[in-house]
Design a protein around this nucleic acid. Structure first.
Lengths: 202, 202
DNA sequence: GCCGAAAGTGCAGTCACTGCAAAATTGCAG
DNA sequence: CTGCAATTTTGCAGTGACTGCACTTTCGGC
């Protein structure tokens, strides 16, 4: 069991090929959704474009939605690790703001892919339920990480989950606001939202 | 075209029968899910137990999940109306606490049904994505109501949606905490959560 | 009782998703 | 390099959610 999180973990050919296939499926799904819209895309098409059989598709993703969203366990672990680390002079909420904003912002690497993914995912209303469902996974991973950071037993106190859930909800609200033609830039609104939450909502 | 929104709208036999059918489908769905678990229940079974054809099922609910959850537009309107009303000396967040807690608490009427519904819905992990998806509907309805209460244009300011989204997230976090064997009674935890949010999270 | 509208129903079809068993591929030991 | 074992891919057959369409039934007003 190799957990070489730092290196590319591309040790075995087998593992590398699985990653490539997964990525190919995700990219194919994004392409097709962009072309035809989510509901008009079939899992067979995605599989065909990725060069695998229809059956193999479901070896990689449990649903069509999951293939389009494509969040990997590694991503979750990476975010969790970032939150677990106690940064000097940063409250948990501030860490969450930084990490969640980082998930949205086109990062240094993968600039265009991240931007494109964001545009496609948010532009598809039929994906909205799946997206909030995906947020549950993120919430669980981040909650466990924050519990470790705070040194409490998993599920022992409400604090960790409450903070994470509220932070994710804040980001979601800002995104929704943006989608509805709301004012201001997304990052600015997120900052504002977290400021309000830190100051106490009325 | 009867738009008698004021009266109980149970005027015509047609309207009453639709309500009854919808309710019958929802109750049948709850029964069956309790008996066999969500995934083992088919829409045909639900329809059969409710005394309608398989096809008619989909005239009432767009999906199996929706039939089990069963949130009606009337319920949404009722919650929205409650939030829109500006109660003396109550901040929006306090109103939300009262209303959302009321949605969970077995009300004066429908005591057992509400309790049973809550138990069945929360006890089915396979329903979790659909439940958070349903929360979007609630969030939208409550956001619109709060915007009216605050006298702002729909989507103009971030405040309304942020407050509603955070409040719903808080309740969800408390429920999750409960489901994971967390300490304390649900209502008490919700009070605590809202207190923390009003005081400002860290 | 009659007529237009609304609701219920049957039918055929598409597609997501699953279990199973055979076939292909890969990693490894000899 | 070669066969062996584990893993992965694939085909096949099946279930069940969901849809569009056309037809019948039912309801409400006149």
């Amino acid at each position: 069991m190799s957990t070489d999180l730092l290196t590319d973990e591309s040790c075995g050919l087998r593992e590398r090929k699985k990653r490539e296939t997964r990525r190919a499926l995700n990219l194919a799904a994004l392409d097709l959704v962009e072309e035809k819209g989510f509901t008009a895309v079939t899992t067979e098409e995605i599989a065909a474009r990725a060069g695998v059989s229809a059956r193999t598709f479901f070896n990689y993703f449990p649903s069509k939605e999951a293939a389009v969203i494509g969040t990997t366990a590694e991503e979750l672990e990476s975010y969790a690790a970032a939150l677990e680390q106690d940064v000097e002079g940063e409250t948990p909420l501030e860490s969450l703001r930084r990490i969640l904003a980082g998930m949205l912002a086109p990062a240094s690497i993968d600039r265009e892919l991240r931007a494109r993914r964001r545009r496609i995912l948010l532009g598809e209303p039929s994906l909205a339920p799946a997206l909030v469902g995906n947020n549950i996974r993120i919430e669980n991973a981040l909650t466990a990480a924050l519990e470790r950071r705070l040194g409490v037993q998993p599920g022992a106190s409400l604090e960790a989950r409450l903070t994470v859930a509220v932070a994710i909800a804040a980001v979601r609200a800002c995104i929704e606001h943006q989608q509805n033609g709301g004012s201001g830039r997304l990052e600015r609104n997120i900052d504002q939202a977290f400021d309000r939450i830190a100051a106490g909502l009325r």
